[in-house]
Design a protein around this nucleic acid. Sequence first.
DNA 1: CTATCGATTGTCT
DNA 2: GACAATCGATAGA
Length: 197
Amino acid sequence: MGDYIGAAQIGELYRLQWDDSFFARDAVTVAADLIGAEFAVSEVGGIIVETEAYLPDDAASHSFTGATNRNRSMFGPPAHAYVYLSYGLHWCLNFVCLPGSAVLIRAIEPRWGLETMRERRRVSQDRLLCSGPGRVGQALAIGKEEDGLPLDRKPFRLSPTAKRPPVSAGLRVGISKAVEHPWRFGLENSPFLSRNF
DNA sequence: CTATCGATTGTCT
DNA sequence: GACAATCGATAGA
């Protein structure tokens, strides 16, 4: 537990603390603060460039109607993974924040393990390796086994950036309920976004 | 570039 | 039985 001070209060000298206290906050704030962070699974990964927040009181959230077998880890401790299967095909990764809330990792700028990612993804351009939540799951080999694992230990590596990057905000993608909230965040003008803002 | 559509299966009503 | 926090292919402008 630490003395994390919100980014808004101390500007560029933020993220003094990178532990449970970072995630035990409003998921919308966490989603914005994660842009620019380094993230890897077994040494394969890069820079988080796109996220979305999902809240307990949010009709688009898997947690909206309460705890079930699928969303159990969303109600577990913060700073753990929540992994679900999307459309019966794509494994998607979230970081759990306060109970019933999480941040979906939507895109990563590939930086480490590029060859491994290319073998797993088999796409023509590197910009397509991790530009979408399902693509992130495939490139980083996320599956059911990662559901509920703590983020501060292997196979994960997560670390802050030295300074706050320019962040864009917009509407969340691919949902049919609670569409009006601007809870999607991205690294401004990044070529590795799932789509532009 | 945008629009549309099929794939595929765990989960919940 | 319906639906889904998606993706890739394809057709057309």
